[in-house]
Design a protein around this nucleic acid. Structure first.
Lengths: 277, 277
DNA sequence: CTGAAAGCGCTTACAG
DNA sequence: CTGAAAGCGCTTACAG
């Protein structure tokens, strides 16, 4: 491994300026003459210089990193396309806002709250994204109480007026779905558990003839299921992407209590085809 | 937000020792008397002190962070259970080895190699995990050339003797699967693309009567598919988990070219049931 | 076993 | 527009 990385000092020396000036060029300070900027940039390039992020963090008290806590349960991560998709959105959003993403998940030994606290107390992140809202969520509580920048995917269980969050209009989605089902002549409408299609199949109930089925979240399963399921696509990628947007605003502008509604989309498939018999 | 965090200095003052001693207590230095250790620990607790990870990194040149680069393609992330599962394994392994995980993915603007370089040059990570091996992988090439600690999930495309990697014995798995299929009387065996079951269904070919199908990777789809697919479970979680193990050894002991074989498991399901007709 | 001192590589008021 | 100086919060030889 190569050691002795080149530093601002090396660049300063070779460019015949002070380290302060090099630093200002790095951070795109406006009051640098075009001439010196170019010269410094050239030297940086010649020397293959790249700023040390850790040193920058320590001096500037900004880490350029966002903390994300993943759920610990396998099923959630695997069966639910929300997590990988939202994570993709977060990574993308973070990249476009020049942030890195620090990931963790609760373990046997550590609760989500403990991870959040560790992230913050060790000064590793500028802000935190909570990927799922829970009732009595201690993370929401804690982050609110110390006023640490964070944003939430989902609906805050409390203090809605203070918590930044992105969400779908689930009420409207359910309403629209119900309306659609009743419009095609369906009378009895219920919300059920995944896996139900197999049960119905075993019980000799035909879908969509005897029973129309629709699901939330547009999972891969709804798409590739024996009978493709009508589903509400909640747009997980965007939920993730815009949660970063909100968090960045919370960090940089002190934004609080902002709410962003991500449009959903009802994807009609075979499971609700045709009229009721 | 609370500012002015308590520092080693505060602790030192109150515990009537030097900052050096506090630092040694933090890092569990062996040559500290039990007495002072206890005293310092008590003060740390009283003051709610928590070491600043950034400052530690800068001084010690260790970040306590592992870099992971995710693929950029949606399909991979969603359809392939490997990624979320392996990621879960990585996070778990990292947690148990006291590492954090820094995540990124290539974007339109940035290649995987550029991300790797940025991670390293900005001193943000101690090591890197490559989640998928590619032919002519420039990341493998680069990391090998600068001798930066990394481990690979999959088989190195080159320099096998130098690259730490975890992998399945895919050759053996394919062999075993083929043997199994031929044992149940199947004559013509082929490797096909996902989505094939629908095509066969449409074409009026019955599974497993006319055709037995088996798949690699034990995806959710194979489990919940109309006709559940026999599949090779490659144990993605373990692949992730042990890639961290290997990486930690690379970082701390300079281990190179170590290879770890993760056992696979053939999960027999309906798609290969019964004898050929 | 413990401390004083220097240093990690930046940033940022302050002054000019 | 630029520089000198102090500081961010730790760690680590070195010396005792």
């Amino acid at each position: 491994m190569k050691t002795n990385q080149t530093t601002v000092k090396d660049v300063a020396l070779k460019a015949k300026v002070s380290p302060s000036t090099v630093s200002r060029v790095i951070s795109n300070h406006p009051k640098i003459s075009e001439e010196t900027r170019k010269r410094v940039l050239k030297v940086m390039d010649d020397l293959g210089y790249y700023p040390n992020a850790i040193a920058r963090s320590l001096a500037s008290k900004k880490t350029g990193t966002l903390g994300v806590i993943l759920p610990n349960r396998t099923e959630d991560l695997l069966l639910n396309p929300f997590f990988p998709e939202a994570l993709r959105g977060i990574i993308k959003g973070a990249a476009s806002a020049s942030y890195d993403v620090l990931l963790s998940s609760s373990t046997e030994g550590k609760s989500e709250l403990e991870i959040v606290k560790t992230f913050i107390r060790s000064s590793k992140v500028d802000g935190i994204i909570l990927m799922s809202s829970k009732v009595n969520d201690e993370c929401q509580e804690y982050l609110s109480s110390i006023e640490f920048p964070f944003s939430l995917i989902g609906s805050p269980y409390d203090h809605k007026e203070k918590v930044n969050h992105v969400d779908n209009d689930n009420y409207m989605a359910a309403y629209e779905l119900t309306t659609y089902l009743s419009m095609i002549g369906r009378k009895r409408i219920a919300l059920i558990a995944f896996g139900a299609t197999k049960v119905f199949k075993t019980a000799g109930i035909s879908i969509p003839k005897d029973l129309a089925i629709a699901s939330f979240n547009n999972s891969i399963l709804s798409r590739y299921s024996d009978i493709p399921l009508t589903s509400v696509d909640i747009n997980s990628f965007d939920l993730g992407y815009y949660s970063v947007d909100l968090l960045a605003k919370a960090i940089n502008e002190g934004v609080k209590g902002r709410k962003l509604i991500i449009p959903y989309e009802i994807v009609k498939r075979q499971s609700t085809e045709g009229e009721a018999k």
